[in-house]
């Protein structure tokens, strides 16, 4: 896969994770589940890209993590959106809308 595509996908995944966490703290598994629910099962996030993405975003300072207890009483790491993350999500949403609208226009042209 050319690098360009990977980058686009990665950026999109970051945005989806931020969006999922904007509704409240979640553990890694929950992030995947929520993205799936929100997309009505259309988007399935590969674990192989989910965790690296989470760690990357955490290092950017957009999310923070904390060990806690999951709904089934197990030790799990929970991720939470930071203020910087909320701002980043806004930026990425705007960019995405602009991109989507542009792509849509292109595809509309007959």
């Amino acid at each position: 896969m050319p690098k360009q595509d990977a980058k686009l996908l990665q950026g999109t995944l970051d945005m989806l994770i931020l969006k999922a966490l904007s509704l409240g703290p979640l553990h890694g598994f929950g992030v995947g589940q929520r993205i799936m629910q929100m997309s009505e099962d259309a988007l399935r996030v590969e674990e192989g890209s989910l965790y690296p993405a989470l760690y990357r975003i955490e290092q950017q300072g957009w999310i923070t993590s904390e060990w806690g207890v999951s709904e089934n009483n197990q030790r799990a790491k929970f991720y939470k959106l930071t203020r910087a993350g909320r701002k980043q999500l806004q930026v990425e949403e705007e960019n995405w809308e602009r991109l989507a609208a542009a792509v849509f226009k292109v595809m509309q042209t007959t």
């Binding site: 598994f29 965790y51 999951s70 030790r75 790491k77």
Partner: peptide
Amino acid sequence: REVEEELRFHLRMRAE
């Protein structure tokens, strides 16, 4: 170790 624990939790959730 932390990464491993986190991933193991994930596997358990998936299995459940």
